[in-house]
Nucleic acid binder design. Structure first.
Length: 745
DNA sequence: TAACCTATCTTTTTT
DNA sequence: AGATAGGTTA
């Protein structure tokens, strides 16, 4: 390797690499080789500029991205590159916290709480508060608290600033305070705490000085998706040497709901007036047709740095648009394309289905099973969230950190040992009075009043077992400890006895065991704590395997940063994509549009878009309208595939997109003999249709008079109910009773 | 205590 | 439709 290391890059990319000193903003469009540029930049710094990898920090969005970047830099400049720290924000923070969390009053073996654990904590708080507020769910409280933490609002300042005036805000403030106290007691941090405490630890001068001295060259990938606290962390560390390079694309900012602040990237030049800005606009990924679609869609957004993707590639295939009758047909046509492609010599792994929400994966999974198409769903109900897996991890968590009451509560009766709610209440009362952990309290169960002899015996057994496991955890590797645990609590029997699909769940347990073995191969002498840390921070696509031949199914969010030869974006319907909640605010709508931009630009060769005129949503049949985003793509690059036999497609004007009740009737009548794969023959039966239409004689837009609510306008009709806008709000009325209350006017 | 039944809600998106 | 919470019963 030599000075020609940068030869493989284009001029702009080289410019970005050569500018190693001072602030640098790389505006990198989708597929413009930004990861490649960052990789070469690091290699160039190490190889050509004499910068020690020890001084380099690169922050990526996922562990997988970090791993890949590291591997590629090592390929370029050798093993020495391993001394550079390339990691996600959360891993970076944990690295510091492992050393310094004690300063903040945590034990070094603190536990990381995921969203599920957070909800359990909030639930217990609400219970102890005897809160009557039903408006806020645990989930809402958890996300409110996370948001506050990640925008740097402490419970104190929140309560001073807002909470006095509003019942809900008051509850949020109260829960926020208690929640923090409880996590601290449990020696636990949630995801937001990892970032917030990293920032707190950097307030110690000696820590900050060390960090600044070590990380003299900082790079941040996906900068458009950083939030306030991440921004503060990075700029705090970067302040001294000011060698900060951020890479991002404001058009791909899709994590606003998590507090990501698009302004971070838009304002970089304000933060660093001497910043050099490099734009990467040449796209190496997609065909011109795909880029044209992407450019047209994103043009409808207001906040955007001026940037247009272009490519040297020759024009590719048109974008196929499937207007399907229902969700099943959509699956059928997409899987038909996959099977056709497979016959033509493509691999399953060349195809990826993208959707807006996880719930949409189910139809595709069923379809794949029927057609023997190997597939893998990324994200969604994650492996580590399955009950049997979380139970085992809860055991390990308690063994690692006995202060962790949330996880102790989870396992106190798993496997079932007749310890019920009443018993738990008594122990809790005792432990709260004495200010001790659940674990310690169980150890003192003989001192707790009102427990039966049998229950005491069970508690003593449990405590003895845990004590033994804790002792073992100090000697045995995690895999051996895990094995021991399984046999001592007879977990396999428990799973087989308690779940209908026990066999399948046991496979998950085995998979967990295998993953431990695999990790132990990578991390030598992995401690229990290290293991738990590792499983807490895995992200959805971390185990994406490019070699294995399966169809990939994932949300658009999960597809960020990835690319695939053939992409299907399904469910392109109003209220799905853009989502229902985005209808009310321009900024939400624009985030949905950026999401659409991300989806389109994942495709290298061929893009399919699809929507269904009706589908089951929330278990009920509803009529759909196509996504507005489809209308933002020029018709000249769209291929409106000829529909199957017997279903003439209207092809005139806007009407083509409209779906009416009449048209839907046609669907049901002709359903049985459409031309697509037999397995996907029309699922909608005449019975469905009747149920759907009922005898309700109104249509959307009709004015009606209600006996009680007065004048209203029909907003939506579905198989079971009609939605009507009245003066004092929207009401839902069941179809079966509608004609008793309504009159058409 | 645990199993069973019913009523209610869910769909954003994730480290 | 599927998951889950809550209430009722064995």
């Amino acid at each position: 390797m030599n000075a020609e290391i940068l030869n493989k890059l284009n001029d702009k990319q080289q410019e970005a690499c050569r500018k190693t000193e001072g602030p640098l903003l790389i505006l990198a469009g989708a597929g413009s080789g930004k990861t490649r540029t960052l990789t070469y930049r690091i290699a160039h710094m190490i190889r050509n500029c004499g910068i020690s990898p020890y001084h380099i920090l690169a922050v990526t969005f996922t562990n997988k991205a970090a791993r890949e970047m590291k591997e590629r830099v090592v390929d370029l400049v050798g093993e020495d590159a391993n001394r550079a720290l390339i990691s996600t924000f959360h891993s970076f923070g944990l690295r510091l916290l492992r050393l310094y969390a004690v300063k903040l009053g945590y034990g070094a073996n603190f536990t990381i709480y995921d969203t599920d654990d957070q909800k359990r904590a909030v639930k217990s708080i609400l219970k102890s508060m005897h809160s009557v507020n039903k408006a806020l769910t645990e989930g809402m409280l958890v996300s409110a608290i996370s948001r506050l933490k990640e925008e740097g609002t402490s419970p104190e300042s929140y309560n001073e600033g807002y909470a006095r005036f509003d019942e809900n805000e008051q509850l949020i403030g109260d829960v926020y305070v208690r929640y923090n106290r409880i996590l601290k007691e449990n020696n636990a941090m949630d995801f937001s705490d990892i970032l917030l405490n990293t920032w707190k630890i950097l307030q110690y001068k000696e820590v900050l000085e060390k960090a600044r001295d070590k990380f003299r060259y900082i790079m941040v990938d996906e900068y458009q998706d950083t939030n306030k606290i991440q921004y503060d962390i990075i700029h705090l560390v970067a302040e001294k040497y000011r060698n900060i390079c951020v890479v991002g694309d404001e058009n791909q900012s899709i994590y606003g709901f998590r507090g990501a602040n698009i302004r971070n990237i838009l304002d970089f030049e304000r933060d660093y007036p001497d910043a050099v800005v490099v734009k990467l606009e040449e796209n190496y990924r997609s065909t011109p047709v795909i880029l044209e679609a992407a450019n047209h869609v994103i043009r409808n957004n207001t906040s955007s740095k001026d940037k247009t993707l272009w490519t040297r590639k020759k024009s590719g295939a048109q974008i196929s648009l499937f207007a399907c009758e229902d969700g099943r047909e959509e699956v059928g046509r997409i899987l038909d394309e996959v099977l056709k492609g497979k016959q033509e010599g493509k691999k399953y792994r060349d195809f990826t289905v993208l959707y807006r929400t996880n719930a949409q994966s189910r139809l595709f999974e069923e379809g794949c099973l029927r057609n023997n198409i190997p597939y893998k769903v990324f994200g969604g109900m994650q492996f580590y969230q399955r009950a049997e897996i979380k139970d085992l991890l809860a055991w390990l968590s308690v063994i690692n950190n006995t202060s962790d009451n949330i996880n102790f509560l989870r396992i106190i009766n798993v496997p079932k040992r007749k310890i019920g709610e009443k018993t738990i209440e008594k122990i809790t009362e005792y432990r709260e009075a004495k200010g001790i952990s659940l674990y310690t309290a169980v150890g003192e169960c003989d001192a707790i009043g009102g427990l039966s002899q049998g229950v005491r015996e069970k508690l003593r057994e449990l405590f003895a077992l845990l004590r033994q496991m804790i002792a073992l955890s100090e000697e045995l590797p995690v895999s051996k400890l895990f094995d021991e645990l399984l046999s001592r609590i007879r977990f396999r029997d428990y799973v087989l006895d308690n779940y209908d699909d026990g066999e399948g769940r046991l496979e998950n347990v085995d998979e967990l065991y295998n993953s431990i073995i695999e990790l132990e191969r990578v991390i030598e002498t992995m401690s229990l704590r290290e293991y738990l840390e590792n499983v807490s921070l895995v992200s959805a696509t971390d185990d994406l395997n490019e070699e294995k031949d399966y169809l990939k199914l994932m949300t658009i969010h999960n597809a960020k940063g990835l690319e695939f030869p053939v992409v299907f974006v399904c469910g392109m319907e109003e209220e799905i994509f853009p989502g229902k909640k985005a209808a009310f605010s321009l900024s939400d709508l624009e985030e949905e549009r950026r999401l659409c931009y991300v989806a389109i630009t994942r495709a290298e060769e061929k893009l399919y878009l699809s929507w269904a005129k009706m589908r089951y949503l929330y278990g009920e049949l509803s009529w759909r309208t196509r996504s507005r985003f489809l209308g933002e793509i020029p018709e000249s690059i769209l291929d409106l595939e000829e529909k199957t036999a017997g279903l003439p497609e209207e092809k005139t004007g806007e009407n083509r997109w409209q779906t009416g009740r009449t048209e839907s009737r046609n669907v049901a009548e002709t359903a049985g003999n459409s031309g697509y794969a037999p397995a996907f023959r029309k699922a909608i039966t005449a019975a469905d249709l009747n149920r759907a239409a009922g005898d309700f004689p109104y249509a959307v837009g009709d004015k009606v008079m209600h006996k009680k609510f007065g004048l209203g306008v029909v907003r939506d009709i579905s198989s079971r109910k009609v939605e009507i806008d009245f003066v004092d709000g929207t009401k839902e009325i069941a179809l079966v009773v509608a004609d008793k209350f309504l009159q058409k006017i």
